[in-house]
Amino acid sequence: MRDSDEVAFGDFMAARWTALFRTAYLITGDRHEAEDLLQTSLAKTFVSWRRVRDKGAADAYVRRVMVNTAASRWRSGRHEQATDVLPDAGHDGGVESATTQVVLWQRISELPPRMRATLVLRYYEDLTEAETAREMGCSVGAVKSQTHHALKRLRSSLGDEMLAGISQGAR
């Protein structure tokens, strides 16, 4: 790789490390897994860096590599659960809201990995269905299906009482 490319990639990695780590964490649910996943994905991106024509879209490229790399790990069946328990930093909505958030996160963590990744890209990264499909390497229909089933599972597992709280809190 040319020196200028290395410098450019180094700048990109330094600037985007924290943001991409957070995405990796939400996808994996585990800090160590997230760090490993991000390192691996950035290394793959570095090797292909010259080929990333639109450096402004490098985040998307890394995310796509992350999802694909994570997918191959999921297929091994050894990374099914998000397990990290993070300290609760407190929330503005009071105890009830905080409890809802904790339960919701637990339920999200229990989703199959691909569903979880779909939700991360759709509702954390705020990507469109088409963008999510592109980053996940699947069809738009598959994104719709994954999203639909993920939300259905969440609704089912949260129960009426929790959902009522969510609806109330959203008003």
């Binding site: 990695m13 330094a14 490390w17 924290t18 780590f21 957070r22 995405t23 964490y25 939400l26 800090r31 997230a34 760090e35 390192q39 990290d84 993070l86 300290p87 609760d88 930093a89 929330h91 809802t100 958030q101 919701l104 996160w105 999200i108 939700l119 991360v120 759709r122 509702y123 954390y124 705020d126 939300l151 969440l154 609704r155 959902l163 969510i166 609806s167 809190g169 959203a170």
Partner: peptide, 29 residues
């Protein structure tokens, strides 16, 4: 209902992401 739930999912992600501390870059690894 979906709108409310997706908003909550978004909030849950944002809060989790903000709560987790990114490790320093391990350049050797």
């Amino acid at each position: 209902m979906n709108t409310d739930l997706t908003d909550q999912v978004h909030d849950a992600f944002v809060r989790r992401a903000n709560d987790v501390e990114a490790p320093p870059i391990d350049h050797v690894a």
